Amino acid sequence: MKKSNYSTSVIISVFVHALFIVLLLWGADFTFDKKPSVGNTIQATMIDPAILNQQAQQIRQQRQAAKDAEQARQARLKQQTEALEAQRKADAERIRQLKEDKLTAEKATREAEKQRQLQQQQAEEAKAKAEVKAKADAKAKADAKAKADAKAKADAKAKADAKAKADAKAKADAKAKADAKAKADAKAKADAKAKADAKAKADAKAKAQAKQDAALNDMFSGLEAENEQRGGARGKHIADEVARYGTIYKQMIQQNLLVDQSFKGQECKLTLRLSANGLVLDVSQLAGNNTLCRAAKSAVLQVSEFPMPDNPDVVKQLRVINLTVSP
């Protein structure tokens, strides 16, 4: 490309110089005056001074015209030369500018291509980085999911194991509780039986010694019934029957009374109301320790029905009974 531009510049320069030479040749005066022949013959001629002056004037005018023409030609040649030089310089400047523009364009093209390649390289590197990052992110996500799945499975297994352990413990606790309850029930039954047996023995002993230590050991210090007939043999018989049935009632109530050490020294007064056939209609607290009275009332209600004699007068006396419980 540079060689072609150089050749073009040389051709233009040669063309300008050739044109300049042609113009010089074209402006030159190639007229030759024919010199008169010189001989030995001399002719004497009379010359009119006026004519001579006129001819001299004409010569001067011709010379001045030639001089003016030469000056004009020189000025025209100079102007043309300057114009050609200016054109040459303009052409040279234009060629230089074209070359510079071309170089600038080529440089810009190279820079653009370099920038494009750099951008392409950066884009490819960014794409490669993005692909690597995407793969890393995908792997991290997969690893996180695998860890989460493993944790979820471990948590589920731990939860299942914990539930199984809790169920096993609950079953064991329930069995232990059932066993403990069964043992407690068996012990309570055994204790109740032992207590009942002991109570029965004590009752038997108390019944044998009722007359001697009733005032000290009998839990019922008083059994009173309304007796309208006090005098005579009939009254004594009714009183004896009431006392006998009262003893029976005391024994029946005593068998159901749960005695506690805290009852010692306490007292409770109750009123029993019975039907004609001995059913307990009502039992109420008149006075005394509330806990002891609840235990005595519970014992009465457990009896539920007391035996009644055939004698209606005795039955009448037993319909309302006042009891004093003092362990």
Rank of each mutant, 00 (worst) to 15 (best):
M1R: 09
N5G: 05
Y6N: 15
S7A: 07
S9I: 10
V16G: 04
L19N: 12
F20A: 08
L23A: 14
F32N: 08
P36W: 05
P36F: 11
P36N: 11
V38E: 10
G39Y: 05
I47E: 13
P49T: 02
A50Q: 14
N53P: 00
Q54G: 09
D68R: 04
A72K: 12
Q74K: 10
R76E: 04
Q80T: 15
T81S: 13
E85A: 09
E85W: 11
K89P: 00
K89D: 15
A92Y: 08
A92M: 06
R94E: 01
R94M: 07
Q97Y: 05
L98T: 15
L103R: 10
T104A: 13
K107T: 14
R110E: 13
E111S: 06
Q115E: 09
Q121F: 04
Q122L: 11
A123F: 06
A123P: 00
A123D: 09
A130M: 07
D137Q: 14
K139L: 13
K141Y: 06
D143K: 07
A148P: 02
A150E: 14
A150V: 12
K151A: 13
A152G: 06
A160L: 08
A160K: 06
D161I: 01
A164Q: 04
K169T: 14
K169P: 02
K169L: 13
A170K: 08
K171G: 07
K177A: 15
K177E: 11
K177R: 11
A180W: 01
A180G: 05
K181G: 02
A182C: 01
D191I: 12
K195C: 02
K195W: 11
A196G: 10
A196E: 07
A196R: 04
A200I: 09
K201I: 01
A202D: 05
A204C: 02
K207C: 00
A208Q: 11
Q209P: 00
Q209G: 04
A214E: 09
G222A: 08
G231R: 08
A233S: 14
R234N: 09
G235N: 14
H237C: 02
H237G: 12
G246W: 07
T247A: 14
Q255F: 08
D260E: 15
K264S: 11
K264L: 13
Q266I: 01
C268M: 06
K269M: 10
L270P: 05
R273C: 02
L274T: 03
A276P: 02
V280E: 05
L281N: 09
G288K: 06
L292Q: 03
A295M: 01
K297W: 01
S298E: 14
Q302K: 14
Q302N: 10
K316M: 04
L318K: 03
I321P: 01
